[in-house]
Nucleic acid binder design. Structure first.
Length: 235
DNA sequence: GCGACAG
DNA sequence: ATCTTGTCGC
């Protein structure tokens, strides 16, 4: 069973959540990877509109072949609502439950959202990185904060996301002439590596895959199947 | 004060 | 995020 550090309670109010982010941000380390990764995990949650029940899942794949080597899903409940800037308080609790079911401890974890490309520099990927104590990064479909110039139309090109004069992430083209995804380091990784890993997770290899990287796509498929009862939440 | 606002 | 069919473009 994969483990994590119970750094703090998740039963907090929005005001307390912001205070926790302010307190935790200083612990986030943006630096090169300590070890070359062999496995990568993707996470996601799904739910029925207006319902408390959430379906969380994590898929682990080999980085070299992108073969899925493990999956874990849970049916849980999210007491916290979605509030821009506080997404981690809604999603991380149930994702940690799924994480605990893994027999493999992934070398790096990709999140559907942002890392430091956040108003207080602690988006879901950074926050989760502190709990998991391993490299994490975010790959989101839209921007929360920051400005960027449109990157060149070819896959692989990217432009920096700027916020208050700081480079917080990158608008990265994963397919030719397709809208970019937004990559930002979470914890224990740097932007260049996060970009490289995102490009490595192209399903068809070299641009023949989808806009979203495989870890995220598979996690998304897993939780949706879970929600629709097409799959059981692994025990 | 007025908008913007990850999933 | 979720609810949903067709449709524009390469």
């Amino acid at each position: 069973m994969a483990h994590y550090l119970p750094l703090h309670d998740w039963n907090v109010s929005p005001t307390e959540a912001v205070a926790l982010q302010q307190q935790l941000r200083s612990q986030i380390r943006i630096e090169p990877l300590a070890e070359p990764p062999k496995t990568i995990a993707g996470c996601d949650i799904s739910f029925n509109k207006f319902e408390e029940t959430v379906y969380a899942g994590i898929v682990v794949l080999r980085l070299d072949t992108l073969e899925t080597i493990e999956e874990a899903g849970v049916v849980s409940t999210a007491p916290f609502p979605y509030i821009p800037g506080l997404l981690s308080f809604r999603e991380i609790p149930s994702l940690l439950q799924a994480w605990a079911k893994l027999s493999i401890e992934p070398d790096v974890v990709m999140f559907d959202g942002h890392g430091i490309a956040h108003p207080r520099r602690i988006g879901i990927a950074s926050h989760a990185g502190l709990f998991l104590n391993r490299p994490t990064f975010g790959c989101g479909k839209s921007v929360l904060v920051g400005k960027f110039e449109e990157p060149a139309p070819e896959r692989g090109s990217w432009s920096p996301m700027m916020h208050y004069r700081e480079v917080i992430g990158a608008a990265l083209r994963t397919k030719n002439k397709v809208n970019p995804v937004f990559v930002s380091p979470g914890h224990l990784i740097d932007l260049e590596t996060a970009i490289s890993l995102t490009l490595q997770c192209d399903g068809g290899r070299n641009g023949t895959g989808y806009r979203l990287p495989e870890p995220t796509r598979r996690a998304h498929n897993l939780v949706n199947a879970l929600r629709k009862g097409e799959r059981a939440s692994t025990v």
